[in-house]
Write a protein that binds this DNA or RNA. Structure first.
Lengths: 249, 249
DNA sequence: TATGATGCTGCAGAAACCTGCAAGGCGGGT
DNA sequence: ACCCGCCTTGCAGGTTTCTGCAGCATCATA
């Protein structure tokens, strides 16, 4: 096999699988690993692939880099926030969790909206406070420095005393079989309490998190009333949830 | 799985869920936790994530910024703050009000101080949260947008359940005859409750406010244990308070 | 304060890498 | 046919990187 041929083959493989291993290629093409390495090096110098220890990666692999000071998928979250904000009517009592999606919701609230918001999330509370016509209620308890929300029995018992019209949860993972799940025990407890205390539960999530799983169970899919993603409601990925009777926006 | 691949996966997970645990990642990717830790460390050095004990956090999540406005008489308040901070010992339970002087106190706390701080003031809470060894407890209730603290019966009843070692009050007016006074009814109620719930009451104020009067009464001078101003304790303006048995710093 | 989880450091084996070299192929010129 | 220069390839060796492990330090939380 000629050198050019070989390199074309390698390039093809990289584009196909997004990655190649020197060891595998050397077996496939029956040349020494050194030769493969030299090929990869040349291709990398031409900018066609990215060489790494052990093989090479497709360039598209590394392109997705996230701006440091911006929230991941912020555009998507803004779309979600606007859809969610439309659900809130005057004089409603709204419970919310924390998270970047909820922050976007707080920012998306219309200025003339007159409602009561209750949350244990400090960043969320700071946003709600910006709105002149919104009553803000902070849930008190010990503060978790990582998640910047109040956690603990006191917070949960306060939530349970509430009868909210709506409850907005930013969720980290949702799955048909396991429902919504998360990875922080304390946060899960809070979210569970919120679901119980609200007439209607609205879950906000970017589509990437649909059909993913985290270790701790929050609630089943059936307990969700409304699911909001950045996708149009007729997207096929949302179909199973609609079939279960969930309102998808 | 290649190292870069792994790190790209981790980065994606962090952006998606705001938080990852080394233990979980190690199970998912089937490598030792050491390897995960090294990956997290590298990503953290590149500034892409924030490493914490047990895992890592998304960077965007942790940026709670609060406008650092220009504080009136900030230098004086810093002096007061340092005097006040010296009163706090390890394992104390401390109640504080809000106000710019209290914010300075929060900033002046030594980094290794290990204590519990309870407050209803959001700016104060944000400052306390910066300290790794301080437990922070938020008092919950309705939020007053002007004073950025929680106010109401719920907050007061929570404070009354507490037995604090110390209570720091930033005060707006103090006068030999009328004691400490203020102009916000709700805030006064909170401060009254704090005084009742603490073994020792410490008042912080710049000297300008000494011998001034506000409409609503908080407490008599006799109820104050310690008075801290930016002045040296032997300043003649403080003499009458010393004569009343108040410890002046 | 004790205890288990997590983190750090140094080490060791394996894999990958780099460098230099020699063998072999190929084409052009003599 | 032979020589020569150039390229390619494989190999030997020494170096670097990666990874897991062990032992001890540190943290978090009851």
């Amino acid at each position: 096999m000629l050198k050019k041929e070989r390199q074309a083959y390698i390039l093809h493989q990289v584009h196909l699988h997004n990655k190649v291993l020197s060891s595998l290629l050397s077996q496939e093409i029956r040349v020494s690993e050194d030769t493969i390495r030299r090929d990869l090096q040349e291709l990398a110098e031409e900018g066609k692939i990215i060489k790494v220890h052990g093989g090479a990666l497709s360039h598209s692999f590394n392109e997705v880099h996230y701006p440091a000071d911006n929230v991941y998928s912020q555009d998507h979250k803004k779309i979600i926030a606007h859809k969610a904000a439309a659900l809130i009517q005057n004089d409603m009592f709204v419970l919310t969790s924390g998270g970047t999606t909820i922050i976007e919701l707080a920012r998306a609230l219309p200025r003339q909206l007159k409602a009561t918001f209750m949350s244990g999330s400090i960043p969320a509370i700071l946003e709600y406070m910006q709105h002149p016509n919104i009553d803000v209620i902070m849930i008190g308890d010990r503060i978790s420095k990582n998640s910047k929300i109040t956690i603990g029995a006191e917070a949960i018992s306060k939530i349970k005393q509430i009868n909210a019209d709506l409850c907005f949860l930013g969720i980290n993972a949702i799955d048909l079989k396991h429902g919504t799940t998360d990875n922080d025990w304390e946060v899960v407890q809070l979210k569970k309490a919120m679901i119980q205390s609200a007439r209607k539960t609205v879950c906000l999530t970017i589509s990437e998190k649909i059909n993913t799983l985290q270790p701790i169970h929050i609630c089943d899919v059936q307990q969700i009333d409304v699911l909001i993603t950045e996708l149009p409601p007729d997207d096929p990925r949302l179909r199973p949830y609609i079939d279960l009777g969930i309102q998808v926006l």
